[in-house]
Nucleic acid binder design. Structure first.
Length: 878
RNA sequence: GGGCGGAUAGUUCAGCGGUAGAACGCUUGCCUUACAAGCAAGAAGUCGCAGGUUCGAAUCCUGUUUCGCCCA
């Protein structure tokens, strides 16, 4: 055989690009409906076109890729569908900023030209993240890449809108909405982030029209006084019972407004009397409706005081507030000002203060849709993991409000509602109308607003498969299997996908949704631009390699969805692990032609040595455990388990122990086969986690078009195990450890090979002597004997009931040994006392399961035997 | 105001009813021809606090302190 030369260090960057090209060249990520296989489908949460790869993606995408690669190897017809989201506001903002640098404005360019420029920009700079995803090793079906603004997708969005409209679930209405003066659009309730801001509570006097004094109200927003429609008190408030129905004068505006009674007024807030401003407060809007109050507005859509604001017109809200307070004070109507911290809504995109303003918007009626989504989850049709998120999901759906879906933007899906210019007839249809069905007119104007980005994202699991057409893909792949995403978009996206899936496909969009934690920095802080603690995954990839980043993400992720604290130490440890695997491979290939060996016959059972049998058993156990964890998407535990096997069993013990039989031509062939077999299966177990290094190695071993990513995942059930031999091998490993411990505790030079004497039960001694060669080799002993030379002194240790002794030199510190033995005896005694107490307890015997009692009984016996042995050593020492 | 999550070895975290675990760090000793990105051996925890349930509690229940998040 031609020995394969591998570098002693695995350099990730040398191989990764080439491996990814290989996968692409073999079309290994592509999926087509295949009736002979069960589909496993994951819809990638589409990153924004403007996006770049951040650490959250690295976690998300890694976990998805692990799931996909695992299922692919398990023989499923695996589809991972990638895509991008047009991300309305975000993208429009980016391009608007860009044209501003050229001295242009959106309005100046006009809608058509501006949208054309965004597309141009998207074609040039959009989707950078896709090439970054490839660096991560993402094995998505790039042939099926979807973009939420592509023509077929647009048909899906329009169809959904028309469907909702015809069903009566969509309505347009003048209502108070969250308005972002900076983004210049309405936003939905969940796009508002509330923060406790420090402000003031102003107490303002409203004089009665009849001159009989005044009523004092408390407000946090004095500038909206100009739009007041009433003063309200609680009907149950005795303090104000006699003023209800009277009239007061609005300060500064000098308008007359009534005093009304309404349940919504809190008795203990401020003075108990409130000003009612239906145009600028959601609660007041409702009060206004109940009492038929006019809804006047003094703040415009640009966030400035408007034409109704008298001499404050054109001022910012902040300035107007300052000025009007001064004016009220000058009028002698300001009673007092308190400091007051209160919750203020901010735009989740730009952080601007949200203005509740009455505008004309489209709303989607949510109650019924939500009820179905709730039911589906409660019935287990959608499994939400970790379970702690179930309540969050349920809670939101239970208290849902109608969804404001229209946005005053240009980049997005334009609402498919047309108005006949002749007769005003409203036509809602997927295709633009040509002739008005009512008057025969041919001129139409389309609604200028676009839909909330999330309206289109909500259709992602089926719109990407061709819906509303009943395509073969839609039939085969829907519902999808698994969704992996962060908890920040449970409401925005997850819940809405469930709703629309049920509405349009009559089935849930995915069987399981796994919510990941958030990646934080080493101090547990959220990664953010302002803290400058953001980590660029691409930097980590170039420093540690993609596989190290992936393995880190997997091993830090927990089933409970804990937030993840990323540290260099962890990445280093993962990199070292990958290098360990690489070097284990180097050892194997230096001794075995893996390809040829595995193509040849299996060694017969009687040719396998005890440690061969041991590692095969351990491999089967590891395979069983890893698969069990993978099957429930517990990637963290799966990664720990495979790590433990690779490093702890295969490298630390088997490779070392194999060096003995490899020197013996009679035994070498079996061991060579086991080395090859264990390596091959280890690589397969690891491939979903660390695809690059495992594929690189496979290329070295096999070459050509033999792909690791298409190999079958190991099946524990088909693996031979040798339980009894494994137990005996464990006994021998324990023996070696006991002698090593003696050597280390007494500072015997590790390079100096000592003579060891083992005395004990016949079967134990026989086991040791039968494997003397291997034991001596890895334990670094000169020789093992079973008889004591009574003329010599020995360093004494106990391994269970076995006496383990090392021939002592004349200068050996026997005082020190005495101390060690006494310490050991003390620990043994303590354990024995504890166990005896437990086993002496009749309640324990009566209630505890038999296995537990048996186990403790056996343990007590073992401890007592060892105690006796150590006791005898001490006596002998005198 | 309502809800959720964390508090376990120096650090970051697993475990979630039957002998306290891992990684990193630390200590001691080793360049043992796969790997010093390594090897061997070790030290290190009254599992936030107080009650309770149980033969048995990090693990279940109640209360409490504290940190963080979400919703209103």
């Amino acid at each position: 055989m031609t020995p394969i030369e591998l570098d002693p260090l695995y350099e990730a960057t040398k191989h990764e690009e080439q491996v990814y090209s290989l996968w692409l060249s073999q079309n290994a990520f592509h999926s087509e409906p295949n009736p002979d296989r069960t589909p496993f489908v994951v819809m990638m949460p589409p990153p924004n076109v403007t996006g770049y790869l951040h650490i959250g993606h690295a976690l998300n995408m890694t976990l998805q890729d692990i799931a996909i690669r695992y299922k692919r190897m398990k023989g499923f017809e695996t589809l991972w569908l990638p895509g991008m989201d047009h991300a309305g506001i975000a993208t429009q903002a980016v391009v608007e900023r860009q044209i501003k640098e050229q001295g242009l404005t959106r309005e100046g360019l006009g809608r058509e030209e501006f949208v054309r420029r965004i597309w141009e920009w998207k074609d040039k700079y959009g989707g950078i993240i896709l090439s970054q995803l490839k660096k991560l090793g993402v094995s998505a079906d790039w042939e099926r890449l979807r973009f939420t603004l592509d023509e077929p997708y647009e048909r899906a969005v329009k169809s959904a809108f028309v469907h909702y409209y015809k069903k009566g679930l969509l309505y347009k209405g003048q209502r108070i909405t969250n308005w972002c003066p900076h983004c210049h659009t309405a936003i939905s309730d969940i796009e508002v982030a509330y923060a406790n801001d420090k402000g003031h509570l102003w107490y303002v006097r409203y004089p009665f029209t009849d001159g009989s004094g005044f009523v004092t109200i408390a407000t946090t927003r004095p500038e909206t006084i100009l739009a007041d429609a009433a003063v309200a008190v609680n009907p149950a408030d005795p303090r104000y019972a006699d003023i209800v129905g009277r009239e007061v004068i609005v300060p500064v505006a000098n308008r007359v407004i009534p005093v009304i009674a309404d349940e919504a007024v809190l008795l203990d807030f401020g003075t108990g009397a409130l000003k009612i401003t239906p145009g600028h407060d959601p609660t007041d809007f409702e009060v206004g409706r109940r009492h038929n109050l006019p809804g006047m507005a003094v703040i415009g859509l640009d966030g400035l005081m408007n034409e109704n604001a008298l001499h404050y017109r054109g001022m910012t809200v902040t300035l107007a507030r300052e000025k009007i307070v001064a004016e009220i004070d000058a009028l002698g109507l300001l009673e007092k000002v308190d400091d007051y911290e209160h919750s203020v809504g901010h735009c989740s995109r730009c952080s601007s203060t949200i203005e509740p303003i009455v505008t004309d918007q489209w709303y989607l009626h949510m109650k019924d849709l939500a009820a179905r989504a709730l039911e589906a989850e409660r019935e287990g049709k959608v499994e939400v993991l970790p379970v702690k998120w179930r309540k969050v999901y349920e809670g939101w759906l239970e208290n849902i409000n109608d969804w404001c879906v229209s946005r005053q933007l240009w980049w997005g899906h334009r609402i498919p509602v047309y108005h006949c210019e002749s007769c005003g007839e409203v036509i809602v249809s997927v295709d633009a109308p040509h002739v008005c069905p009512k008057c025969g007119g041919t001129q139409f104007s389309q609604e200028s607003d676009v839909l909330d980005t999330w309206f289109s994202s909500a259709l992602w699991p089926f719109a990407t498969l061709g819906w509303p057409e009943q395509t073969a893909s839609l039939k085969y792949y829907y519902p999808t299997s698994l969704l992996i995403t962060g908890y920040d978009i449970i409401f925005f996206w997850v819940a809405r996908m469930v709703m629309s899936g049920l509405e349009f496909m009559d089935d849930v969009p995915f069987r399981t949704v796994f919510i990941t934690g958030l990646v934080r920095d080493e101090q547990g802080r959220k990664m953010s631009k302002s803290l400058k603690n953001q980590v660029d995954p691409l930097d980590l990839i170039s420093t540690y390699g993609t596989d190290a980043l992936r393995f880190t993400m997997a091993s830090l992720s927990t089933y409970g969805g804990q937030d993840i604290l990323l540290s260099d130490q962890k990445l280093l440890s993962s990199r070292n692990f990958i290098n360990k695997l690489w070097n284990a491979t180097r050892f194997v290939v230096a001794n075995v032609d893996v390809k040829e060996t595995l193509a040849g016959p299996h060694p017969a059972d009687d040719q396998l040595g005890p440690f061969d049998r041991w590692i095969l058993t351990r491999l089967a156990e590891a395979t069983r455990d890893v698969t069990a964890k993978m099957d429930v998407y517990d990637f963290g535990e799966a990664s720990h388990r495979v790590y433990e096997f690779v490093w702890g069993d295969f490298c630390d013990w088997y490779i070392e122990l194999s060096k003995i039989p490899l020197r013996d031509e009679a035994r070498a062939p079996a061991t060579r086969w086991v080395l090859a077999y264990a390596l091959e299966n280890t690589l397969r177990l690891l491939h979903p986690f660390v695809p690059f290094v495992t594929e690189t190695i496979t290329q070295q071993l096999y070459g050509g078009d033999h792909l690791m990513m298409m190999a079958a995942y190991p099946e524990a059930d088909t693996m031979a195990t040798y339980e009894k031999d494994a137990v005996q091998a464990d006994f021998l490993i324990g023996f070696i450890k006991a002698v090593r411990n003696l050597k280390a505790v007494f500072h015997l030079p590790p390079t100096e090979k000592q003579s060891v004497v083992a005395v004990g039960a016949e079967s134990d001694i026989a086991a040791v002597m039968a494997n003397a060669e291997a034991v001596k080799f890895v334990g670094r002993f000169a020789d093992i004997d079973t008889r004591l030379d009574t003329t010599q002194r020995y360093i004494k240790g106990a391994y269970g009931t076995m006496q383990v002794m090392i021939l002592a030199k004349s200068d050996f510190d026997f005082e020190g040994e005495l101390k060690v033995l006494r310490g050991k005896l003390e620990i043994l005694n303590a354990d024995i006392v504890k166990l005896e107490a437990r086993l002496g307890n009749q309640d324990f015997i009566a209630h505890a399961p038999v296995e537990v009692v048996d186990k403790d009984t056996l343990r007590l016996e073992a401890l007592k035997a060892e105690e006796q042995l150590v006791g005898a050593f001490l006596k002998g020492q005198g």
